[in-house]
Design a protein around this nucleic acid. Structure first.
Lengths: 325, 325
DNA sequence: TTGAAAGCGGTACCAC
DNA sequence: GTGGTACCGCTTTCAA
């Protein structure tokens, strides 16, 4: 690989000038032309490693998600990527597996690689952004919220849970079960609170066995649903508090024998890969791509110099905290 | 952030010694201890940018896939990631969107970032690995094959198409349609060839309208299936040549009105997010995770110094070319 | 075993 | 507008 010095020599200018040309800074047209020609002839390719070392940051943005296999997060990734690309940033997608250690490792790497920053859907409540913070890198938290003083974008999960439950009630369901997520996961807890609230508002009561905690994956939803089918009286409806759990619930129902009336299913989230017509389901879609876009925009604003207080954006809802400059 | 020089000063040694300690090279125990202590106290974190500049390669591996939203490729990513991590490599997941330009861009970045190399599911027939090759970086091609002289891992797509079709024939289907991929995509063409071969072997003939070309996404499969439902006589079975197309086909059938006998569906690939019981479908599973694992292993072998001829590995099948050292 | 020092390939400041 | 050059933080000879 040719180096900048070689390009400079060939073009009869200094490396400083080459650097300027590449950066689009003012340079006499003829030397700019000479540089470009030399670069082409030599097949020159800038070494980003050297650049990041000197500049103290690279054009890489780490996106850390708890599960790359969840279509929700791949859709988020699309949104982030499309937005970041326009600003010349490339996205490094990292899978934390909901494991705080892995998450910490990836964030440490992001810091160590001098990445521009990270967009993180945190695995645990506390976010180990120490390294990034020390380097002054940008951090945006998505989906789940944290205490830390950083920009955050997410949903109003209580409202989501309440809305889904209300829709079920509107359909005439009264015995409504809820499959929540792991205890300790804020989004799950909030959606569950919304469910409780909607039940309370409608004056409905349900047995405690109607609340199940599942991991937020397909198998969790399946097992929880199987469990619910064993409860007497059967629930008339099941609220799946995320997409994967919803898939599991539908699979469990599809596999369960008999012609008894089956519970209705409501899903918070989208089912892009459903193999049935899901238009009959109660669904509360989430727009994950928009989540990614919004997060990336906030990220870019920070990169562009915005220094206001940490913002909390609730998608399809209110924004609290400082507005973008 | 503390630098290595600061750690060295605090430990009363030179940066060379600090570097050695961090690399696990032989150093007197007491100075090693001093270095570790100083590093901890200062919260020292190695700067990988500087390291890669000096070493001429980083611990990053680019995985370039045509569609991150396809569960097939996220499963591949899992396999790659799990395997690479054990060797201390982090995986940068890049979405080429089946666009050769994007692909080229990502590969150029990988080269420019001095990444260890790339594992690529190529968008087009020719693979623009120029930069990586020049730098001596490792390249492994997966899923689709290319002319280039690089390690490759994939499936025997003709066999897959043939097997799926045979299974349909065994079920008594005779009029079997095929939804293939974009013309020009080798994997699609081969699976389609397998379909033809199986039909021929069984002495079956089908009208030309039974072959459809779709993009390899859900909407493509849906539209193609809708088209097939308009053909007289209706096909008794539809072979979906990839997972997304299979989902689309199932969606189209689920949405189509009427009680007419519906075509059977065979799918090459897996349907992890199906919302129905798919055990009744004809399925030819693909083990994408294994594909990723195998590719990463080959990658690591090269990194470890293996210099034999380019290998072509066919999963669940034969291996041609040199064996790993 | 260890330290001094020369880079790796850019960027950016400073003087012209 | 341009060139000289110090420097980013680490790795790796080379000598001691």
């Amino acid at each position: 690989m040719a180096t900048m010095a070689e390009v400079a020599a060939r073009a009869g200018v200094s490396t400083a000038t080459v650097s300027r040309v590449l950066a689009g800074k003012p340079v006499r047209p003829d030397s700019a032309e000479a540089v470009r020609a030399a670069a082409t002839e030599l097949d020159y390719e800038l070494d980003r490693t050297a650049r990041s070392l000197r500049r103290r940051y690279s054009d890489l943005l780490a996106l850390v998600v708890p599960d790359v296999e969840n279509p929700f997060f791949t859709a988020v990734a699309r949104g982030v990527e499309d937005t970041a690309r326009r600003a010349g940033l490339s996205v490094v997608l990292c899978n934390s597996d909901d494991d705080p250690d892995k998450e910490r490792r990836y964030l440490a790497i992001a810091a160590s690689e001098n990445m521009a920053g990270a967009i993180v859907a945190p695995a645990a409540g506390d976010l180990p952004v120490g390294g990034l913070a020390r380097k002054g890198a940008t951090v945006v938290v998505i989906d789940r919220s944290v205490e830390a003083d950083v920009d955050q974008v997410g949903f109003d999960n209580v409202a989501l849970g309440r809305e889904a439950t209300r829709l079920l009630i509107d359909r005439g369901c009264r015995r409504i079960a809820c499959i929540s997520g792991p205890s300790g996961m804020g989004t799950a807890r909030d959606r569950e609170l919304g469910w409780r609230a909607a039940l309370a508002e409608a004056g409905l009561e349900v047995p405690p066995e109607y609340l199940r905690h599942a991991n937020f994956r397909v198998d969790g939803g399946r097992r929880a649903t199987e469990g619910l089918l064993g409860v007497t009286p059967w629930p008339e409806a099941v609220l799946a508090t995320n997409n994967m759990v919803g898939i599991g619930a539908l699979q469990a129902l599809a596999a369960s024998p008999g012609d008894e009336p089956r519970p209705e299913v409501a899903v918070i989230g989208d089912l892009p890969y459903a193999t049935t017509d899901v238009s009959g389901l109660v669904q509360v879609p989430l727009r994950p791509r928009e989540l990614g876009v919004r997060a990336a925009e906030m990220f870019l604003e920070r990169l562009g110099g915005f220094t206001g207080a940490a913002r909390r954006v609730v998608l399809d809802g209110t924004t609290t905290g400082a507005e973008p400059a």
